[in-house]
């Protein structure tokens, strides 16, 4: 099975990039290759023009992974200190604890820390070499709401200082809230890449649905802002940038009833773009949008 296929990504310094895709899209495999934890079957991986393992050893890249284990019997501060000791020129332990927002639990045993605190500990460790690129692989999986919020507060504070952050997630709201740029990936390929606003624009427009026997397709398609009209039996489906015009027309000029207006949001774009195009109908629509508006 091919997990990642010809994926190429250019990330500018200082960007916060979300790597968004469903489970099995190839996010973790890509990041593992980037970090030298996996080797591509064919081709090569270079980061800052270096072998991934070299970039990691030199502290240019650091990461917070889903799986990296911690030693439960050590305290938070000891864990960071032990990691700091292997770097020739680390940031001070107290500083990274502070920046990760865990200075107050420095003396706590790792085994007694919550999932969110353990992730912030991993983040503190990743801050030690003061990396140029911070890689986060689904960093908030399994965290409760508060833990997630605290974790992202710490990451954002750090990113504001100008660090490049690349994070994988399958939470839309995370990508939406914390990224400057979203890269949607499906089956190991990039299917959309743009600023958060651009990707959200893919989703602009609403779907108006109504029961209207014998609907006049041509008249509906002629309304301003209508992208597409579809008739299924007595039901008519209208995709439109301006749903108000369509709704007003339907309610005042036709005997239409059961009028429903639904917004297409980032989730629809996400679903559309990341579901197999052959099985999911809306994907074709969204992909056509994509070709025109992004890249």
């Amino acid at each position: 099975m091919t997990a990642v296929d010809g994926l190429s990504l250019r990330v500018e310094p200082g960007e916060v990039v979300a790597f968004l895709g469903p489970n099995g899209a190839g996010k973790t495999t890509t990041l593992d290759m980037l970090l030298g934890l996996a080797r591509p079957t064919a081709g090569s991986v270079r980061i800052f023009g270096q072998e991934p393992a070299d970039a990691v050893a030199l502290g240019r890249v650091a990461a917070v992974l889903q799986t990296g284990g911690l030693l439960k019997d050590m305290t938070v501060a000891e864990t960071v200190q032990m990691t700091a000791n292997v770097y020739p020129n680390p940031r001070p332990v107290s500083e990274v604890l502070e920046r990760a927002g865990i200075a107050d639990i420095a003396g706590r045993r790792v085994g007694k820390c919550s999932g969110g605190q353990q992730q912030r500990l991993r983040f503190a460790m990743a801050l030690l070499p003061d990396p140029d690129l911070m890689v986060l692989d689904e960093p908030t999986t399994g965290m409760d709401v508060e833990g997630r919020r605290d974790f992202w507060t710490a990451i954002r504070r750090d990113a504001r200082a100008g660090r490049t952050v690349l994070f994988a997630t399958h939470y839309l709201e995370e990508a939406d809230a914390y990224a400057d740029r979203i890269v949607l990936i499906r089956q190991g390929r990039v299917v959309a890449d743009g600023t958060t606003a651009q990707v959200k624009n893919l989703a602009s427009g609403r779907l108006v649905r109504a029961t209207l026997p014998g609907a006049d397709q041509v008249a509906l398609a002629g309304l301003p802002g209508v992208d597409s009209v579809e008739v299924r039996g007595d039901t008519v489906l209208v995709q439109a940038g301006d749903s108000d015009v369509v709704a007003r027309y339907l309610l005042t000029q036709t005997p239409a009833r059961d009028v429903e207006i639904t917004a297409r949001n980032l989730e629809d774009v996400f679903l559309a773009l990341t579901t197999d195009a052959r099985t999911a109908e809306p994907a074709a629509v969204a992909t056509n949008h994509l070709e025109g508006s992004i890249r």
Binding site: L35, V56, A57, T67, G69, L70, L71, V86, M125, A126
Partner: peptide, 20 residues
């Protein structure tokens, strides 16, 4: 024990050589 806990994998994100 530390491999089972995933610590070895964590260490691979640092410059520490396995031999060290």
């Amino acid at each position: 024990v530390e491999r089972a806990q995933g610590w070895s994998r964590q260490l691979r994100l640092t410059p520490l050589r396995p031999a060290a």
